[in-house]
Design a protein around this nucleic acid. Sequence first.
DNA 1: AAACAGTCCACATAGTTGGTAGGATAGGCT
DNA 2: AGCCTATCCTACCAACTATGTGGACTGTTT
Lengths: 137, 137
Amino acid sequence: MLSKKSQYAFKALAYLTEKYQQGPVLISEISTKKRVPLKFLENILLELKKADILESKKGKGGGYYLKKDPSQVKVAAIVRIVNGPIAMLPCVSLNFYKRCDNCDETACGLHDIMIKVRDATLNVLETKTLIDLLPMK
Amino acid sequence: MLSKKSQYAFKALAYLTEKYQQGPVLISEISTKKRVPLKFLENILLELKKADILESKKGKGGGYYLKKDPSQVKVAAIVRIVNGPIAMLPCVSLNFYKRCDNCDETACGLHDIMIKVRDATLNVLETKTLIDLLPMK
DNA sequence: AAACAGTCCACATAGTTGGTAGGATAGGCT
DNA sequence: AGCCTATCCTACCAACTATGTGGACTGTTT
């Protein structure tokens, strides 16, 4: 399951996608409009900035805004940043691979199943972008 | 990600699938063969029994064994028992549904994305069974 | 300089995870 | 009946993660 943090991140990103190319948006505005605890949101946005998703400006007229066009930012990337691995097992993760203990990957049925799950999941998450966060008109 | 508990559960189930119709298997045997902490494994097997996946026998000659034919037990069922919801959000879970706060499901882009992920995932997990845990010959 | 708004660090608290201890319970055998 | 066996059950624990909060600091704008 996605953490609360991740859900907050997506709410914030949806808001920033709406406001794309309309200048910086205050953390406090996102917080009140999307009902996300202010200080918690601060941390999340900062993390997204460090991951190169957002850009920020300090001082009057400052705030956060999307660094790239929302249609270019994949949902999969966001999940990896705020929620961690997408795969259900470390040994089938593309971005967070870790060998599993006492388990020969070449002879592990679960391994194969989880690769299929990963591919099916990525097939969705890698094709959806921030644009898809907005409700259809 | 699947918890350690879930991974242990699958190891144990793989072993019991191998030994299907060969009588009860001791917890201690599974523990040593699959390198799963004994007491932890006890809890896991008990949970699987309560969930109607396993059957047990006490006393001499006792142990655990599969209640149904392994080809009839879906991997999805095991994940739900030992790991919880398969969906990435409560509001798109079939078996653990919970409405999300401050979020209109009919106008939530994330909701739609996660439904697609859920369906793609279930498409794999509902078609794989315990048999698929065993390595191909 | 003053107001503003993000940055950073430290902490608090609650809940989950992974694992252990010890005894209760029940079946099998002589 | 009485003993062995093996599961069943309750409680507990340490470590970690998730979810926040508080307060001081840095840089910008006017």
